[in-house]
């Protein structure tokens, strides 16, 4: 879970940074989207790089979800008899909601691909015009809401997930603990604010 999580986190950072191109206008943003398909040319053909990335990410996602299911299955079986008394939780909200947040994010990924990659559920859904598709999306209030909810779930997921990966991979120790928690907080906030800036900008009319 840690390894695949870190790979997907790296992708999210790049994805978020790329999204900010929208603030430079339709020409820049659509040009950037086109450029993504030309990465690796002439060694790779048009949009081959994107397909390689999609395969890697899908592999990570499947491995991540399968590990999560195996872990949950194992954890449930490790305590067949529940406690009768209510246990006071000391762990953070983010830690306790990893599984639910993960489900929300997984459903969102399906929606997001149908919306802005395939264009099937997009109000405009015109290939080659991502800027216009994005703007059409967030002019519908409930689509904006889907994105906001998913990004908040992602924020909590990264906050616990990054530090947790440091624990799992053995990179953490007593001296580095505060540093890893701080980086986790910064990463979670930067990625969430970065992603949310796009729908918020469209909804407030900053990007149209």
């Amino acid at each position: 879970m840690a390894t695949t999580g870190v790979i997907m986190l790296l992708f999210l950072i790049v994805h978020m940074a790329g999204n900010l191109k929208i603030f430079f206008g339709p020409t820049d943003f659509n040009g950037y989207a086109h450029w993504l398909r030309t990465i690796g040319e002439p060694a790779l053909h048009y949009s081959w790089y994107l397909w390689i990335q999609r395969v890697v990410l899908l592999g990570c996602l499947v491995a991540h979800v399968v590990s999560a299911i195996q872990l949950t299955h194992r954890d449930i079986h490790a305590r067949p008899q529940r406690y009768r008394s209510k246990r006071p939780w000391r762990a953070t909200f983010a830690t306790n909601t990893m599984r639910y947040g993960g489900v929300i994010i997984a459903l969102f990924v399906v929606w997001h691909i149908l919306d802005l990659t395939v264009g099937a559920v997009n109000p405009r859904g015109e290939a080659g015009h991502p800027y216009q598709n994005v703007v059409a999306d967030f002019q519908v209030w409930w689509i904006g809401l889907i994105y906001v909810v998913a990004m908040l779930a992602l924020c909590l997921h990264i906050y616990h997930g990054f530090w947790s990966a440091a624990q799992t991979l053995g990179a953490n120790n007593a001296a580095r603990n505060v540093a890893f928690k701080t980086i986790a907080t910064i990463l979670a906030l930067v990625i969430t604010v970065g992603f949310l800036s796009v729908p918020v900008a469209v909804m407030t009319g900053l990007v149209s």
């Binding site: 872990l71 194992r74 954890d75 079986h77 490790a78 305590r79 939780w89 000391r90 762990a91 830690t95 306790n96 990893m98 616990h160 530090w163 947790s164 624990q167 799992t168």
Partner: peptide
């Protein structure tokens, strides 16, 4: 032995 897996909740150390 059938123990569960760690999800880094920190309840043990607490």
């Amino acid at each position: 032995a059938g123990f569960g897996g760690c999800t880094n909740t920190g309840e043990c150390a607490a």
